[in-house]
Amino acid sequence: MYGAQEAQEARNSNRLLAIRLETNTSCNLHCRYCYAQSGEDSVKIADFNALKRIISEAKELGIKSVVVIGGGEPTLYPNFRELIAYIDSLGIVPMIFSNTVLMTEELAEFLYGHNASVMGKLDSLKPEVQDYLAGREGAFEDIKTGLENLIKAGFSNPAEPGKLRLGISFVSNKMNLEEIEEIWHFCRQNNIFPNMEILTPTGRANDELEDKLLTADEIKKVQIKTAGYRPKILRVRLASLHPDYCKRLSSASLQPVHQYRRKRPACAPTKLDEHPALRINGGYPYNVNRMSLKEIYNSELFTYVRNIDRVLEGRCGNCENIGECIGCRGYAYSVGINNGIDPLKALRMECQQCFK
C-alpha cells in the first residue's frame, strides 16, 4: 500500500502507482456479497496477450505493482502462473487477491518465489458463518488450509518489520460484527495484514444480504474499536489519495496494491461502466480495446476521479484530515446511485462510514 504523500506526488506528476487486473469472472465460491456476481457459471476470460500489453502500457506510466484480483477467483485463470511470472520479470510486484481455496503448498511456494503478496479472505472464525457468506459448504476448511499453506511458504515472515506479504480481507456485516476484534487480533498475532471492509450495497449483496448491512451506529462502533489498534495518526478512517483508488492505511503495510478493470471505473464498487449517464453514443468508452491506458488515464472522467479530494462535499470537504483521507468513495458512490443521485455527485458525497 502507498502512503498519502506518495500517492499525492504520483497524482500530481500524472503517474500511476499500480493497476488492477480482472482476469476471469469464474469462481469456485458464491460469496453473497460479491460485487461482480462471479461464480462457477461465469466464463469471461481475459486474453493473456491483451493483459501483457496493458501491463506494458502501465509500466510506461510508472507502476510499481499489479493487483491480480480476478473479478472471480484469479487462480482459476488459465494463464495465472504465466501472468505472475511476467509481472515479476518486469520488476513489478504481483499482488494477488484470492479466496485461497486452491492454494496448495506448491502454488504458495511459486508465488513466494515470484515476489508476490497475497490477500486472502476470512470473514469469520466460525465455519457455519464463513460457509454461509461464501455460499458453499466446506468453504471455511478450504480457506483455512490455503492460508496455512501460505504461512508455511513464508508469507507471514516479513523481511523487515511492517513489510507484510500476507493479508486477510474480511467484510464486516451483522453476521460477523462481534468477531471483528477477534479476527483483527488473529491477523496481528500471525503477521497478517487485516483488511477490514464494510458490506457495500452493490452486486449480489443487494439481493442476498440486504438485511445484513450495518447501520451507521454499527459502522461507527467497529471503526472506533479497530482504530484503537492503530497508531495515533491513523485514528480516523484513512484512505490513500492515489489516482482512482481509496483504501485504508494501517500500522503495517502490504507490498503495494492498486486496481484495474478492462472497463475502468474508479474502484470496484463504483461500476461507472454500468451507469447510463457515463456512456457516449450508447457505450462506455473507457475500454482498453478502444483506447490506450494512457488515454483513459488522461480522460476528463478519470482526471476528475483522481482529483476528487478537491471537490468533496459535506464533512469530507471540510475535514482537517483531507490530506490523508478521502473516505470510502466506493461506498459513497453505491449509496448515492441506489438513491438515484448523479454518478459524479455520488463520487464526491461525504463518507458514509466516517465515525468523526
Rank of each mutant, 00 (worst) to 15 (best):
G3D: 14
A4W: 10
Q8S: 11
S13A: 15
L21T: 12
E22I: 01
N24Y: 13
L29W: 01
C34A: 04
Q37R: 03
S42Y: 00
V43P: 03
S56K: 15
E57K: 07
A58N: 09
K59V: 15
I63P: 02
V67K: 14
G70T: 05
G70E: 13
G71H: 00
P74F: 06
L76E: 01
F80M: 09
F80P: 10
R81A: 10
D88A: 11
I92H: 01
I92Y: 00
P94C: 11
F97H: 15
S98I: 04
L102H: 03
E106A: 13
E106Y: 12
L107W: 07
A108V: 01
E109A: 10
E109Q: 06
L111I: 06
L111V: 06
G120K: 14
G120S: 15
D123L: 12
S124N: 07
K126G: 00
D131V: 10
A134E: 15
E141V: 14
I143F: 08
K144R: 08
T145L: 14
E148K: 13
L150C: 08
L150W: 03
K152P: 03
K152V: 05
S156N: 14
S156I: 05
P158S: 14
A159K: 12
E160Y: 07
R165C: 08
R165N: 12
R165V: 05
L166W: 11
L166G: 08
G167V: 06
I168G: 13
V171L: 05
N173V: 04
E178D: 10
N190T: 08
I192S: 00
P194M: 06
L199H: 03
T202K: 03
D207Y: 12
L209P: 01
E210Q: 12
D211V: 03
K212V: 11
A216Y: 11
V222I: 15
K225M: 11
K225C: 04
T226P: 02
R230D: 10
R230A: 09
R230C: 02
L234I: 07
L238D: 12
D244K: 07
C246R: 00
S250D: 13
S251H: 08
A252N: 04
A252Q: 05
A252C: 08
L254G: 08
T270Y: 07
E274M: 14
H275G: 00
A277H: 00
G283L: 12
Y284K: 03
Y284I: 10
Y286A: 04
M291K: 12
E295H: 06
Y297F: 00
Y297L: 00
N298M: 09
S299I: 10
V305D: 09
N307R: 15
G314N: 08
R315F: 12
N318P: 11
I322W: 01
G323H: 09
G327F: 07
R329M: 12
Y331R: 01
I337L: 02
N339C: 01
N339H: 07
G340F: 14
G340S: 15
A346D: 10
A346Q: 06
M349E: 09
Q352C: 05
Q353K: 02
F355S: 11
K356H: 10
